[in-house]
Lab assay of single mutants.
Amino acid sequence: MASQGTKRSYEQMETDGERQNATEIRASVGKMIDGIGRFYIQMCTELKLSDYEGRLIQNSLTIERMVLSAFDERRNKYLEEHPSAGKDPKKTGGPIYKRVDRKWMRELVLYDKEEIRRIWRQANNGDDATAGLTHMMIWHSNLNDTTYQRTRALVRTGMDPRMCSLMQGSTLPRRSGAAGAAVKGVGTMVMELIRMIKRGINDRNFWRGENGRKTRSAYERMCNILKGKFQTAAQRAMMDQVRESRNPGNAEIEDLIFLARSALILRGSVAHKSCLPACVYGPAVASGYDFEKEGYSLVGIDPFKLLQNSQVYSLIRPNENPAHKSQLVWMACNSAAFEDLRVLSFIRGTKVSPRGKLSTRGVQIASNENMDAMESSTLELRSRYWAIRTRSGGNTNQQRASAGQISVQPAFSVQRNLPFDKPTIMAAFTGNTEGRTSDMRAEIIRMMEGAKPEEMSFQGRGVFELSDERAANPIVPSFDMSNEGSYFFGDNAEEYDN
């Protein structure tokens, strides 16, 4: 993207840094990872977990959730003011799984939030270390993106479920800051804005008074975040219109849905970061690795190297396929839920299948599930090659597409044709070009129609051997075009429920 120079890199967003050079960025990201790792080690000690239990991804998720809940100030305040039966607002906890007599047992633990905050700050040299908290939120978000298709949420806001490739980060909490905003897809931002506008339509006082002023500035800020994701002048001009509207209503909703559809071809720039579970960072720190000293990046080879040398386990339900569970977590670790499966298959070195073909449910185990038949197995999170994460949407291309997802959002900077089903997408653009945004709409449609099938995206960008740390010898991959490109292809993934 041309304006790259004016933006802070995501590592800076990730670490609240002012302008830093590459070495400083690597050190501050490393410091953040160190903090998460030290916190995780301490929690495993508190909970008396064995090494194996500490490497269980379900335990990692519970521990991450506990610290996120302990620092969720708004919710904590709300819980104190609106006490609900049987919930102690000062405590947080969740299921911890232990191996007892050759069987997995679930144990519900409860801790004072104050105590968890103390352990977290102690692991982070006394700081609140917001960057580390956001990092864990993005890992949870990436896992949700890989596990669930947001059909219901899309339909509720009037969008087409086939636009799911635009929904990265749709389950990120509001408090995820600049680093969170960077990884949100165009569809996620559109959905947040539509929800806001709908509230304004239904509630006369939404934009009024002292609160209304705050609401208005939040609305304009979200519009600017979305505008910054678009790469064409016409899309940005249309966002200006939406932002400046005196009284946002149905016309703005129409414009936003139009823009979301246009992003299936004229893709937005959305950041991709490899955020790993805390149970990967903990053992690495415990083994003596100093992330701050060595430096770390979320968008280069580092996460690949770390996963190459990590042992992570997962509980497996009786009829689940461990290899499929591994694929789910591998995609989440690489922030690749909406990437082209052919690119992923090449990088991973084994075939990556669409969601609907995987015999696996989510990673988390519900409290009512029976533990008797639970097994555990090693997650295979290694890769054959590594590639640089991208934040450009890439230019655009036609490809055989599917009944489910009709476009992709690249996660890796790797040369390819970008699949999208042009006739299906263009069919949504018939007729409606009147109104105050008509010239911009016409211009956007013209650009979409001009998108050429034979153009290559990320020209000359390749993948790298894991021994090639400096990215000196790019390998331009070859793809098996007979395979499906979309992950949520004609899909039956479970729906995400809060």
Rank of each mutant, 00 (worst) to 15 (best):
C279P: 08
F338S: 03
E380S: 08
S345T: 01
R55H: 00
P354A: 15
L79T: 09
P410F: 05
Q399T: 00
A332H: 06
A2L: 10
L143N: 14
Y148R: 14
Y111G: 12
E244M: 10
R118C: 00
E292Q: 08
M481K: 12
K87F: 12
N417P: 15
R208Y: 06
V280L: 14
S478L: 01
G431M: 04
L315F: 02
Y148K: 11
A271Q: 09
P83F: 04
G94Q: 10
E292F: 06
A336I: 10
K305R: 02
A251M: 07
E53W: 12
Q231K: 06
K214Y: 14
T378Q: 06
G404C: 12
W330Q: 06
S310C: 01
A22L: 12
M222S: 06
H82N: 00
M159S: 12
S377M: 09
G126K: 02
D127H: 15
G300R: 13
Q311L: 15
E80R: 01
M136G: 15
R389D: 12
A332M: 06
A472S: 02
A271V: 15
V463E: 04
F230T: 06
R400L: 15
M426H: 01
L79H: 08
L226K: 13
M32C: 13
N309D: 13
V186F: 03
K48M: 09
L108S: 04
D468T: 14
E220D: 04
P277Q: 10
R361T: 04
T171R: 10
R470Q: 08
E11Q: 03
A233S: 08
R246Q: 12
N125L: 00
I194V: 15
G37R: 07
E339I: 12
K293V: 08
A373I: 06
R389K: 14
A427F: 01
T6F: 13
A323S: 05
M196H: 09
P173Q: 14
W330E: 10
V100M: 06
R152Q: 08
V414G: 03
R400N: 12
Y97W: 11
R400G: 15
A70V: 13
L298W: 08
L49G: 01
L108C: 13
K31A: 04
R204V: 12
E14F: 01
F458Y: 12
M1I: 04
S170G: 06
G300I: 11
A251L: 00
F39E: 09
L341T: 12
S310H: 09
W386D: 13
Q364F: 14
C279M: 12
T360I: 12
M32S: 13
G35A: 04
R74A: 00
K422F: 08
G93R: 06
R199P: 05
N124E: 03
E449N: 10
R436N: 08
S297F: 06
N59P: 02
R436A: 09
E53F: 04
L172S: 15
K103Y: 12
V285G: 08
R348H: 15
P173W: 06
S165E: 08
A70C: 02
N211A: 13
E455S: 13
Q308G: 05
R8D: 11
Q168S: 04
G126E: 06
I197V: 06
K273I: 14
K31W: 09
S467I: 15
S297P: 05
Q308I: 01
S9V: 09
V463T: 09
G158Y: 00
E469P: 10
M222N: 07
P303A: 05
S28T: 12
E114A: 01
T151H: 10
S457W: 09
L154R: 07
Q405N: 02
A366S: 04
R117K: 15
G450C: 05
I57C: 12
M136R: 15
S176P: 14
S413D: 13
G228T: 02
A260N: 10
E252A: 14
L172I: 02
Y296G: 13
W207K: 10
K452P: 13
R106H: 02
